[in-house]
Design a protein around this nucleic acid. Structure first.
Lengths: 316, 316
DNA sequence: GGTCATGTTGCTCATCTGCGCATTCGAGCA
DNA sequence: TGCTCGAATGCGCAGATGAGCAACATGACC
């Protein structure tokens, strides 16, 4: 009996959704009353047989966003749909676009925006429209002078975001990580660096990404750390880094000594910020995303569907 | 302008389909009139941004079936959905189920059903319900005594279908292909074989599958042909076989000599039959499916979504 | 500036659809 | 057999929706 009904509900759904016939017409074809048809369709939906996807680069998953807001301390969450996405690049592009959109719509418009650097942030900067805001000053919040070609990218990211908002960019003239603690202390004490750090610590909003803890990390790529050092960090529980600082799944600093040699604002500044927007996407960043959200390092998360589900614990 | 509208239509679609809000509510949220929202949703659908799939083993693609009926000579077409299918086995099972369903609902109920043999047909026999009809006699229409363990399967298929319909099965006691023409002529002349062939030629309906022309063909597997012989047939234009007879993309016999040594009803019998149901599924059978449908070898086709689209020429 | 063609907007109305309630059906049981 | 109760069914109604239409804006061209 239930078996027959299930089959009927599929037939009804085909006629309703594919052939868009009216419930009454379907009733005539299947020799049922239109009320029965309505109930069969409701049943089909309830059983999850009907899958509706919005296939578009700008599509979002509102239901997942809502669940994220409800089950975490996030004040806002943006989850881009991964429907119809085949490559990782495409997903990154979608997420960056969403971050740019969010930033554009952000109210109040931040006077000073603190940003990190990396591939993700760079892509966000490219997706921002010219004139996305007016008079937003951008300040780097972690060491941005890298040891290779990425240097240009880091600076370009800040400059682009500022330029498109008719604002000024303030770069942090320091390496991300120094080899010796006293060098780091010295550079931090330097007026030009200290001023930027103070500006960063007082920013009205933050926009940053996260790096996964493996040999593909941007910090390894930039030459600040070796693959072995990262492996050692993983052994100590690291899941990834935020503004250059490696944290474990609870959001705690993994290696205080290394952290001491890292130049940039403290994680506490992010934790207490009114607006801290994290942009994290990709399968390799599920753990770090979970850590960031779980330990309150951001107030807003922009991410993709799969990462969001991982944070909600809905796919192992 | 159109760009903004497109984005709005996506936002509207999210609220409508994911959050199932009413168009009026969406209007309030997005500051639009409800008519505008309705138009945006219509636009989103028309642009193909909204994808509705029915995820169920018994789901069919009615729109594709209709197009098949319209653009070919088929009197009926059954196309199973491949939504949510991960393995080829699953697709074969779905198609076999659909064929069993179609056979069960076939009117008038055939008094005599001519069948071929093979993996597909066997699976159809398993999916038929006990008592799917009453008093249907089954007759094999091509050589069924194979050279190895498949023999049992071929016979079992016929017997199962007949048994479940309280009918009798008539087996064709002959190899599919003989090595010498005169042996074939002799065996065909034998009363026991001739009687079965006559019965088959007079069947009120046919149910058969098709084999692709490669080394995985059932005829190779059964030992009737070698991989080399099949390769040679392909060189001559063969795309697959129907009841043991290899045809090219126009539905013509590829090798008359080989065809002369093949035991079973002629293709003409299928072409002139009132009801000839072909069950063809899987990526490797797109060409043979196209040939069968294109050359009028069946009146009814049971297949999967991808094969159907290939026949319609909608995916290269 | 005037005129026309085109596309957009707001609206009415007929239709479609989901919800709540009364009725009926049918299995289980005395 | 007759009874009881829960589930399935049929239905009225109000809210939601799509089609068609008139008014209006827009912009091209004379």
């Amino acid at each position: 009996m239930t078996d027959t009904d299930e089959l009927l509900s599929i037939r009804a759904a085909e006629l309703y959704y594919e052939e868009n016939k009216t419930q009454d017409e379907i009733g005539t074809v299947l020799r049922l009353t239109r009320w029965k048809v309505g109930r069969l369709l409701a049943q089909a939906k309830a059983s999850g047989f009907i899958r509706i996807e919005i296939v578009h680069p700008r599509a979002r998953r509102l239901s997942i966003e809502r669940r994220l807001r409800e089950t975490t301390q996030l004040t806002d969450a943006i989850v881009v749909s991964s429907a119809g996405v085949s490559t990782d690049e495409e997903l990154q592009s979608r997420t960056a676009q969403a971050a740019a959109d969010y930033l554009t719509g952000l109210r109040p418009v931040p006077r000073t925006l603190g940003i990190s650097w990396g591939r993700t942030l760079h892509e966000v900067s490219l997706h921002l429209a010219q004139g996305w805001a007016s008079g937003v000053n951008v300040v780097q919040i972690n060491g941005g002078v890298s040891l290779n070609r990425r240097a240009g990218t880091a600076a370009a990211t800040a400059v682009t975001i500022a330029h498109k908002a008719s604002g000024a960019a303030t770069l942090l003239p320091s390496p991300a990580i120094l080899e010796r603690l006293d060098t780091k202390t010295a550079i931090e004490a330097d007026r030009s660096v200290a001023a930027v750090l103070n500006l960063g610590a007082a920013a009205s909003a933050y926009l940053f990404s996260a790096g996964q803890a493996d040999q593909n990390s941007a910090l390894v790529d930039s030459g600040y750390l070796t693959a072995e050092q990262v492996a050692e960090l993983v052994r100590k529980g690291a899941v990834g880094d935020i503004v250059g600082r490696y944290i474990d799944s609870n959001g705690n600093i993994v290696d205080p000594e290394l952290n001491g040699r890292t130049v940039g604002i403290q994680l506490e500044a992010l934790r207490h910020a009114k607006t801290a927007i994290a942009v994290i996407t990709g399968g390799s960043k599920h753990s770090i995303a979970r850590a960031v959200v779980g330990s309150g390092l951001c107030t807003v998360l922009v991410t993709d569907e799969d990462t969001a589900l991982a944070i909600l614990g809905e796919n192992a």
